[in-house]
Simulated scan of single mutants.
Amino acid sequence: MASEAHGAEQAADQGGLVFHPMDQFIVKPLFGGDTVEWYTITNVTLWMGVTILAIIALLVLGTSRRAIIPSRTQSIGELAYGFIYKMVEDVAGKDGVKYFPYIMTLFMFIVFANFLGLLPMAFTTTSHIAVTAVMAFAVFFAVTILGFVLNGPKFLGLFWVSSAPLALRPILALIEIISYFVRPVSHSIRLAGNMMAGHAVIKVFAGFAAITAIAPLSIVAITAMYGLEVLVSFIQAYVFTILTCVYLKDALHPGH
């Protein structure tokens, strides 16, 4: 943020205000070079690794003592565990509890990646569609395969609205099929789009902080947007997870 404001200040001194809020989303090789191959270790790789280490620190190291009077770290871990467990049980039902570890892993990865992305000089991995699409398509294929394994051809009842008039059922079935296959697209774009938009707006306000006349207003705007992003970071992790639970429910109990 400071470097962005400094660059904008230099540009302002030269007679114009120039800053690039989208530069923060550029994937760069971690050890130099210009090309990024599938095996290249990048800033995305680094912050995904940091995210995993942070989750291990909270859920493994932080709860290893299993104290009757929990520490702060253990309390946070237990709170997260209970929160997601209740979500899975309420949305997907008792049958969905056996898939709790996968859903818990998804939530913890997304929420930690979102929060770590708010640190100065950090990289928000969930702002990239390549990351969110992998998670969304993993959920899509998992629940689809699970639906056919558990229900066989009866899983197709998910697309047949038996409560609707007979003449409308084929049309509604087509709409249901289209909406079903759009799920991973909306699932991934919603998360990536929200994270990218919020961080870009913060960078824009940081650029305006270089202008003395509006610097106080810009700082107030940055503070407000940062607070909003903290809330959005949690909400988007929650939305992604609860939609996963809804899709899991459809696989376990198809039909209208």
Rank of each mutant, 00 (worst) to 15 (best):
D95W: 04
S75Q: 11
V88Y: 09
L61F: 15
A92C: 05
E89M: 08
L61R: 07
D90S: 09
P70E: 12
A92F: 05
I69T: 14
P101Y: 00
A92V: 03
Q74G: 07
E78N: 14
G77R: 00
R72C: 11
F83I: 03
P70D: 10
T63L: 09
Y85Q: 04
R72G: 14
I69G: 01
S64H: 14
D95Y: 08
I69K: 09
L79G: 04
G62E: 06
G77A: 15
V60M: 04
T63E: 13
P101Q: 04
S64N: 10
I84S: 00
V60Q: 04
A67E: 12
S71I: 04
L58W: 10
E78V: 14
Y85F: 11
R66H: 13
F100S: 03
S64I: 14
Q74Y: 00
T73P: 01
S71Q: 06
V60N: 01
V88R: 11
A80H: 09
T63C: 11
D90K: 05
F83L: 11
A67M: 04
I68V: 14
E89P: 01
V88K: 07
V88C: 02
K94W: 08
T73E: 06
G62L: 07
T63V: 12
T73L: 11
L59C: 14
K94Q: 11
R65L: 13
R72Q: 11
D95M: 10
Q74D: 15
V91A: 06
A67R: 12
I68S: 15
D90I: 08
Q74P: 06
V88A: 05
L61Y: 12
G82H: 10
M87D: 02
S64G: 02
I69L: 13
T73D: 11
S64T: 12
G62Q: 04
R66G: 00
L59E: 15
G93C: 11
A80P: 00
I84E: 02
I68Y: 02
D95F: 02
S64V: 13
E78C: 00
V88F: 09
L59S: 09
G77W: 00
G62W: 03
T63F: 03
V60P: 01
E78K: 11
E89W: 05
L58F: 06
G62C: 07
Q74C: 02
P70G: 14
V60R: 05
E78S: 13
I68D: 11
F83A: 12
Y99K: 06
L61T: 13
I68C: 01
I69N: 13
I84G: 01
L79F: 13
T73I: 09
G82D: 10
K94G: 00
Y85M: 03
D95H: 08
Y81V: 00
P70W: 00
K86A: 12
G93Y: 10
Y81Q: 07
V97Y: 08
